[in-house]
């Protein structure tokens, strides 16, 4: 960035905490109200996008060190989802069965039930955050390219413009 966007940087840092809290609340209330792991992941990714846009890729990764592990996060999330879905195979049940069976007793924390679909949602959350962070990291590299490309303004006139 050639000019620091001070307001955007401050807002990015301030908004990070609340966006994580909103994401957690979406996962927690997602079984009795609107919400799921995907929406939570996108909310966190929006907070991260603000970091990337306001600070640039390298400064954002300095501010939030866990971003360097985004590919590993992504693969862990996917494997968690697949594991949760396919582990009933070990006991001969159909895949994607819930572990405390529908109707059986389940441990709860407040209104949140601790059962295997919760693990699936967490895996999905990690997957979405990881994928969108990798994407933001790749596209944030565009900054260096744009300067030496010196692309002239695109002329979309139907008769065809000319490059100056």
């Amino acid at each position: 960035m050639s000019r620091p966007y001070v307001v955007a940087q401050v807002v990015a840092r301030l908004l990070w905490g609340p966006s994580v809290v909103v994401a957690i609340s979406l996962i927690v209330k997602g079984y009795t109200d609107v919400g799921d792991g995907f929406a939570a992941g996108v909310v966190v990714a929006l907070g991260l996008a603000l970091f990337y846009v306001a600070l640039g890729a390298s400064a954002a990764e300095l501010a939030l060190p866990f971003l360097r592990y985004a590919p590993r996060l992504m693969i862990t999330g996917l494997l968690l989802c697949l594991g949760t879905g396919f582990f009933p195979l070990l006991s001969g049940e159909p895949i994607f069965s819930h572990l405390p069976e529908p109707g059986a007793h389940v441990a709860t924390v407040g209104s949140l039930e601790l059962f295997t679909p919760l693990l699936f949602d967490l895996g999905l959350f990690l997957l979405v955050v990881g994928v969108l962070t990798v994407l933001l990291h790749q596209l944030a590299g565009l900054k260096g390219v744009a300067e030496d490309l010196a692309v002239p303004p695109v002329d979309d006139a139907p008769t065809g413009g000319r490059r100056p």
């Binding site: 049940e93 159909p94 895949i95 994607f96 069965s97 819930h98």
Partner: peptide
């Protein structure tokens, strides 16, 4: 044939 989650065919995949 396999239906996910053991649900009946119209509910599970």
């Amino acid at each position: 044939q396999l239906v996910t989650g053991g649900w009946p065919a119209g509910v599970g995949i």
